[in-house]
Simulated assay, not measured.
Amino acid sequence: MIQYFKYIPITFILGFIVDAVVGDPRNIPHPVQLIGRLITFLEKRLLVKEDSDDKKYKKGMLLTFLVVLSTAFWGIFILYCAFLVDKEVGLIVMTVMSWQSIAAKSLCQAAMDVHEPLKDGNIEGARTAVSMIVGRDTALLDKDGITRAAVETVAENTNDGVICPMFYLAIGGPVLAFIYKAVSTMDSMIGYKNDKYMFFGRSAAKLDDIFAFVPARISAVLMMAAAFLLELTDKAHYSFKDSVRIFKRDRFNHASPNSAQCESVCAGALGLRLAGPAVYFGEMHSKPYIGDEKRKIEADDIVRACRLMYITALFPVIVYSIIEVIRIYVV
């Protein structure tokens, strides 16, 4: 397993490239789906409606511990077996795991699944597509609301689905990246502040806040740099200055300490007003707005948000590649 740490840089780079080219094939089971099934299995056995709040909290802690432990165990076991066979097999398995921990192309594909029916005037199709990628109720969303929800998802998941796993890939390889993915999946499944999950999902939500804290702020800085580059070719739709201004003003306009970091940069860069009141599980939740409405939102803003995401993700790949070249040929 000594080879594991040696291969982290090359599998980090290869994993990103494979994701950019292949994405997540929809006919092949993804490891996150297995993590999700484990969470559902444990939830059915641990969450009891009649339990006290304290007992729900403790059972939620147990679920969080078991999911993280299981993910770490299977990640290490699979790689240990791969390296026992041959170091090249270990390299291949590490690359596959690195690829499957990054979700850049699948995030873009999901957003484009919303964009395409919007451009064709198929509001119902767009509403169905956006319901697959957001947690809010979408039944009453109009064209602008659907577009806004898709842009917000791309902005927020630039960190959650792309930069954050890349951060943990870089410092700890695919095992650590998948531990983060397990934490993020728990947060998305049980981390809600509603009657059912308020106490049971609190540990998962707090752990996700901790894991995402540093990467979220790195993501925001990288996204500002991406806005600067994109403004050079499209001044009409990107603004570096406003990305910085809105970030400074609105980066904490969210219940999570991390979610508005990238969202505020994206809102400023595109000149849009995002977030605001939204319906979850049939209840209206009052949420602050992020950004200024300098222009009316349009379907192509989904494409622009995806460009912003991809340029943001390229920065750490380029930096890591340069460091690896220097390490191999200079040091």
Rank of each mutant, 00 (worst) to 15 (best):
I297D: 09
S264N: 10
D209Y: 06
A227D: 07
F240R: 03
D234S: 11
A299K: 07
A255L: 06
Y280G: 02
M224E: 09
S188A: 14
V214E: 09
E263C: 05
K193N: 12
L272W: 14
I218V: 15
R295V: 03
G191E: 10
V317C: 08
A204S: 14
T312K: 10
Y310S: 01
V221F: 13
P215A: 06
F315M: 07
D187M: 05
C306I: 15
H237M: 01
Y238I: 02
L232I: 12
R307S: 03
I190D: 01
G268A: 06
Y180C: 07
D208P: 09
I290S: 08
P316K: 03
A220V: 13
V317Y: 00
G268P: 02
K181L: 12
G271H: 00
G291V: 07
V221I: 15
A220D: 07
N258Q: 11
A216W: 01
D195G: 01
N258P: 08
A275Y: 15
K206Q: 13
H254I: 11
S203W: 15
I297Q: 03
D209M: 05
M223K: 12
T312W: 10
L270R: 03
S259G: 06
D300T: 09
R304H: 09
Y238C: 05
A220M: 02
G271S: 04
A260S: 15
K196R: 14
Y197A: 02
R251V: 14
D292Q: 06
A226G: 05
P257Q: 04
L229T: 11
K181M: 04
A267F: 13
R273Q: 15
A269C: 04
F211P: 10
A269E: 07
A236C: 03
V244S: 06
D300N: 14
L222P: 02
F228Q: 14
F200Q: 01
R304Y: 06
R273D: 06
L207S: 08
R304G: 07
F228A: 14
M198G: 00
A182I: 02
M186N: 06
R307A: 03
S286N: 14
E293M: 13
M284I: 10
E298C: 12
I218Q: 06
A204G: 13
V303F: 12
K181V: 07
V265R: 05
A212V: 15
R217V: 13
F252Q: 07
K181I: 10
N253D: 02
C306Q: 07
S219H: 00
L207G: 01
A204K: 00
R273E: 09
E263Y: 13
I302W: 14
R245G: 00
N258I: 10
V183F: 11
K296I: 14
S203G: 01
V183C: 08
K235P: 00
S239W: 08
G191T: 01
R249Y: 08
A212D: 13
F252V: 10
P215W: 08
V303N: 03
F213Y: 11
R202T: 07
Y238M: 08
M284Q: 12
E263H: 09
A182M: 04
S264K: 03
M189Y: 08
F200G: 01
L229E: 04
L274Q: 04
L207V: 11
P257S: 04
A305D: 11
F213P: 05
M224G: 04
P215I: 03
N194T: 01
K296P: 13
I311A: 10
L270G: 05
K287T: 02
M198E: 15
